[in-house]
Design a binder for these strands. Structure first.
Lengths: 203, 203
DNA sequence: CCGATTACGGTACTCTCGGTATCGAAAGAG
DNA sequence: CTCTTTCGATACCGAGAGTACCGTAATCGG
């Protein structure tokens, strides 16, 4: 339902009736401009004027597509769902490792890491951003929930295990790492966290 | 060199020579004003002009004491070290529960929860804030490290257990909870997280 | 007591930035 | 052709961070 905007600001690829159609190149140019500015100067460098200038358009064209700057940044930094491919086939520890590594890779990418702190802070100002960010993890949560349920049934995991708690633990560890100690989230950290979580799931 | 300021902006309680001394009531009034504004209108309500007005002083007096707004907010929202009293006496699970609950209580207090997101976002702009925020956990880390070492020696904990990883897990879980799902950090959540962490520490 | 120094309140100022408004022109639909 | 919408361009508004200057007040060393 109408998060973002009541008007067809985004989505609705349906050719709605009259009027000059939007130039689809502007949207792509804007998203690319945001990503460049994030990589070059961090979030402070992402001003509406700078994005418009680099995208070769104007502020009005941007506000015609996104209700506010954070929405544009969010779409630029986190396009689509987090499709960290977990194959779900392997044993629980391996699947866990995939989730941990995938989450870290997604949130530690330069563009994402530069946008995440400010985006999280803007959540209180723009409630719809909250839902939008959470939805990025919807698919992962569904898969993890299913996988965990199977593991519990097979006696491989503790019956109290909950997918939401587990995922929140992973996301929290990565987020606080990105915010506070971004240099320590190396592969060894991934392995340690995976091992810790695997131990916590033992029946 | 000189992060914060070269001048004795803060600290230096030493009576330095000449000049009219600072009115100590202004500092307290400013910190109280920030806490009130945070509680009433969240971080967006904390503007320098508003703080000065409520504290009954002027912006200049504030900038004479803190290099920038985030520093003032940080000191107001997180005064001193996090002294979540862990008695270290009980068994590991009980001590763990104390840390989890104490961290949650400290970061979920209305004033802290209102300030934390924006403060975390400002870390990239004001690097000295990073050190200041991390130091709030220095004591907790030291105690936890000591406690964990004893548990490992006693065979109560897995030898791979690391205090920094464990504390990061707790802080991350609380922070991401505050930022994303502040309503779900109830006592039941504390118990579940404690149990999970305790399981992960089993030898 | 005297000068030097620093903080005080008050005010005005600059600068940046998010967001809005207005304009004529252009591009499509019916 | 008309109606609608987007286009680029520009100007504008309001808010807020941070700075500068003023005359005044307090405290120091001498």
């Amino acid at each position: 339902m109408g998060t973002i905007s009541a008007r067809p600001t985004r989505s609705t690829p349906t050719t709605r009736g009259a009027g000059r159609p939007r130039d689809p190149r502007i949207e792509q140019a804007a998203l690319a401009a945001v990503r460049e500015l994030l990589a070059e100067g961090g979030y402070p460098a992402v001003t509406v004027a700078a994005v418009a200038a680099r995208a070769g358009t104007t502020k009005a064209a941007l506000y015609r597509r996104w209700p506010a700057l954070p929405h544009l940044v969010h779409e630029a930094a986190f396009p689509g769902e987090l499709a960290l491919q977990m194959h779900l086939g392997a044993d629980l520890a391996t699947d866990l490792a995939g989730i941990v590594r995938g989450t870290r890779d997604a949130l530690c990418a330069p563009v994402a890491a530069a946008a995440l702190p400010a985006l999280l802070a803007e959540v209180s100002t723009w409630p719809d951003l909250h839902a939008a960010m959470m939805q990025r993890f919807a698919g992962v949560f569904r898969d993890l929930d299913e996988r965990l349920r199977a593991a519990v049934d097979a006696g491989e995991a503790h019956p109290d295990a909950r997918a939401d708690d587990l995922l929140r633990l992973v996301i929290g560890a990565v987020i606080s790492g990105v915010l506070l100690t971004p240099d320590e989230l190396d592969d060894a950290w991934v392995e340690r966290l995976t091992a810790t979580l695997a131990r916590s799931l033992r029946p």
